[in-house]
Nucleic acid binder design. Structure first.
Lengths: 123, 123, 123, 123
DNA sequence: GTGGTCTAGACCACC
DNA sequence: GTGGTCTAGACCACT
């Protein structure tokens, strides 16, 4: 499971984790009923404190995105209307953000696409 | 001059403007001595209050990125060590951000590159 | 025998039953050698499942508070040091709990005492 | 402001704090617009960690019982239908709880009322 | 100074 | 082992 946390961003880390898990659930990358990593495990993987991941999971639970079954762990719930998003729009927005940066840096399209391919290979 | 402002981000708008102008200066997209749009003009272009743009310019001036010459307008200063950044790293980071989103959405590389090309055409 | 069970409390019901019987034994309200209601009978009286009452009795037996003599039923044992409590302190604590609630509700002493008298009459 | 926290109760401490503040708001003991103690101050007063009180306030805010105005502190909101409770019923229930304990201890009515008066004097 | 965020570590119940 | 709770202390922005 790919989650990228950036402490330099003025968005709380637990919100970043929540947002990205919610996106994966909405997109079907994480499927209904699938078990999430334990709070402890994800905290270790991302280099975060247990409480930070716990807060993200708590928010996802109150958003009806995941369900926590006591000692069994946390599981993906079926996406609801309110949790599902427009994937195409999200991708377009992310692409636009890259394009803005690239043009400000004076990079051309070819180099930009090349950068995307290289980043793709790193994951 | 491309500047993308997003009010939904918890980063103050004047910081977004400052950051993007600083990036263009560091990258050489805006060249030393070049005249910036007036505060009033840029505010109109971006749909912002005059004071917001004024604050961005003020911060850029105290960062030695631009210089304001009274009624002549504002001008780009020569990049200094502290204002210049690693362009390649910035582009790589922006590309990585897109790739993270794309993989979380379950998009493949081809569709991602396509989205970049389409966003490129919109600017 | 007065036992008040409240399912809305996060204390397991069998613990509530155990605690209240233990209190009555410690206070002498239930005397040594006295026969307890059968599990089945108490379950009916309190509207509980038979297993819930059985678990309370089982815990009381392992605490040496009661003794089960096969088909004869269950009987109160003599209070030991570990089962006896400070009655005065228990009453004071219960009174304090009521007083805290009353003061938070803005009730005066007179109305509070009146409420106690009315509750007394209901049992 | 009277808040009684009991760590031996199997109800999380932050829930106890939330419940008691909510009760005082519902009863009008804390009036609309009134400023609550700061998180730090209440934590010191109750001998709790800052985060525990912060969680209680956070829940009260999501319950629309209080409002937090950044660095100004936290303030009581006007009670809503969903936050207001039946005071008389709450008092009766608290009195009933005391009566159950008293009768289980074999205490008579007079001694019970006396215990209430003494507890009253301690606050 | 405030509330908000994050960490590291402890203890608890057992969903 | 899990999630849940609590603590003590740190740093941050300024709602």
């Amino acid at each position: 499971m790919i989650i990228a946390v950036d402490a330099s961003i003025p968005l709380p880390v637990y919100e970043q984790v929540r947002e990205q898990i919610a996106r994966m659930v909405a997109a079907g990358t994480l499927q209904t009923g699938q078990r999430l990593p334990t709070i402890r495990q994800l905290a270790v993987d991302l280099g975060l404190a247990k409480g930070t991941v716990a807060k993200a999971y708590e928010l996802l639970e109150s958003d009806q995105v995941i369900e926590t079954r006591g000692r069994m762990g946390s599981f993906i719930l079926a996406p609801t209307d309110s949790t599902s998003n427009d994937q195409a729009a999200e991708l377009a927005q992310a692409a636009e953000s890259l394009v803005v940066t690239a043009r400000q840096l004076g990079t051309d399209l070819e180099a930009t696409l090349e950068a995307v391919e290289q980043a793709w290979a790193r994951f």
